[in-house]
Amino acid sequence: MSNRVEQVLLKQSTILMFAVAVAAIVTGFFSGSQSILFDGFFSLIATVIKVLMLITAQLIAKQSNRRFQFGFWHLEPMVLLIEGSFLFLIATYAFLSGMFGIINGGREIELSLVIPFATLLSVVCFGYFFYVRYQNRTLKSSLIQFDNISWLVDAMLSIGLLTSFLVALLLKSYGYGTWAAYVDPSILILLGLSMIAPACKILKPALRDVLGIVPDQLDEDVRRVMDEVKVEHGFLDYVSYVQKHGRARFIEIHVVLPIDYQLQDVGKLDALREDISAKLGEPEITRWLTISFTGDRKWIS
């Protein structure tokens, strides 16, 4: 059920973002505003990323197969890495484009077109951002969470555009039309700088997952539980490995039992597994837990 809601939200987001992209590109072309055009191309790239996210969500919902025996969880951080990289590149482009615009003497834009568009765009982007954030309170999807960052960025872009265009209108009204020409490239510089933080917010966790860096908190939690269980059940030693790919958490634990450990039957080992599993938290479809037992240390070295 949750995956179905996730896919519906991603489909809505993709269609609406594509509509925003087309509207921004058309408005930017006829008004002569590079910042509006930039917003349109940002939205267009965001649409492509959302399509990738939707495909990823659909694959994750499928069962594993012989080729992908652990499922498709690894695709999630890869898509987020692509999104974060595009955001960072777009931010760099916006900054450089704005700098060149100022060096070249600014640019005139048709304010009667861009002000109503920026107003409407602000309402749409902020409205959809808060709607999705509310929906994700119970869904708790990382795909939806990071996807919604693009709506927040677009909303902030729209507010920045609207404020700057109103400033340009005031400058023209008071006879400072020359200075008004620098508003559009100045917006691009500010937008580029403001997008770096959201890009890094997506890139950092995605890059950790793709590179296979151990999630510190998960590793500490597993070790804490196993230290307690080791004392409680009289284990000689253990070794644990953890990994994270998107929402999927992989936990592997190998336990060394004393040679004279009392085992009436195999059910005793299953009971130990149940105890460890319960202490690690509620079992979820996103958690892959493997627990093995041995009496020879060579199997954990």
Rank of each mutant, 00 (worst) to 15 (best):
P205I: 14
E284N: 11
Q63R: 13
S240N: 09
R224L: 12
K230V: 01
G106S: 08
E282W: 07
Q12I: 12
I55S: 09
L52P: 00
I159V: 15
A21H: 04
D209F: 03
F70C: 04
F130M: 10
R223K: 14
T163I: 15
T92G: 12
I102V: 09
F30H: 07
S43A: 15
I276T: 07
D237V: 07
G177V: 07
V5W: 08
F293W: 06
M17L: 09
M195P: 02
S122V: 05
I103Y: 13
G192Q: 08
L87D: 04
A24W: 02
Q58L: 07
V256C: 01
A197G: 05
T56H: 09
T27H: 01
K279A: 15
F86Q: 05
A181M: 07
A46W: 02
T119H: 02
A23C: 10
I300Q: 04
G212V: 11
N3R: 07
L280Q: 05
L193K: 06
F41H: 07
I276R: 02
Q264H: 14
P198F: 11
N65H: 14
K140V: 13
S112C: 07
V183K: 00
D227H: 12
S31C: 11
L203K: 11
L188V: 00
F293T: 05
W299A: 08
L75A: 06
I45F: 14
F38K: 01
Y134I: 13
I115K: 06
S97N: 08
M226T: 06
T92Q: 08
T178N: 13
S33Y: 04
F130H: 09
W299C: 08
I36M: 11
I55N: 10
K230H: 04
I49L: 12
R287Q: 09
E110C: 03
L9Y: 05
W179M: 13
R297F: 06
F100E: 14
K244G: 02
V225C: 02
F293R: 04
H233C: 02
L80D: 03
M17Y: 01
G160F: 10
D39K: 02
A199G: 11
F18G: 11
A21R: 02
L162H: 08
V26A: 12
L10S: 04
C200L: 15
I15Q: 09
V51Y: 12
Q262M: 08
G212S: 12
E110I: 10
L203E: 05
F100R: 15
A24T: 07
Y261M: 09
A278K: 15
I285V: 14
E110P: 00
F29I: 10
K201Y: 15
A278Q: 14
Q12C: 06
V255C: 01
L152E: 12
Q262E: 11
D260T: 14
V183M: 03
M156T: 11
R273F: 09
V255Q: 00
L280H: 06
F29D: 02
I102H: 00
Y241D: 05
Y174W: 11
D265T: 14
Y261Q: 04
G267R: 11
V266F: 13
I276H: 03
I144F: 06
A206P: 02
L211T: 15
W288V: 12
V153Q: 05
Y128I: 10
R273A: 08
L157R: 05
A197Q: 11
I90E: 01
F100P: 00
L139Y: 05
F165M: 11
Q264K: 14
